[in-house]
Amino acid sequence: MNDDLNNVLESAAKTVFTTMLETPLEIDRSNEPFFEGDYHIAGAVGLTGAYNGIIYLYSTALFARKMTSRLLGMTDDEIEGDEMVNDAFGELTNMVGGVIKSNLEELNQACMMTVPSVVRGSNFSIEAVTGVERRSVYCICDGGRVLVEALIKTADTEELA
């Protein structure tokens, strides 16, 4: 188990959520399955360099809307449809990715980062292909659940583990 990478994911999630949403974020060690049956949203940024892979931020569309409202200081009525939520969720993903990238750089694991993208829908899952290691950090904040996940190519991570 690569503790460094897990710590980096946890630290990034805490930094972004406490700074931008001004709400404490707790790590849920129960690892219970999230979001089944809900309408989902997933933000993604790619990393390449010492680590090659993708960072995901994953939640329900409903909670993403609540986070958007909190992030922008708006009421739910003021949120103009899914586009605004997608943009805000993409930006949160970008920030989580940015903190992860910076923390990895401090561990001498420099990476480049891609622009964020957002997918939404129901009943979809993100699967890892062979040779990719999955690290998941389950978080609870403001009564909602968020999953921060890293899918990293094993070949690059083996030396670090």
Binding site: M95, G98, K101, E105, M113
Partner: peptide, 8 residues
């Protein structure tokens, strides 16, 4: 303004 705080 940047999301990347790396030294570079």
């Amino acid at each position: 303004l940047t999301a990347e705080a790396g030294r570079d």
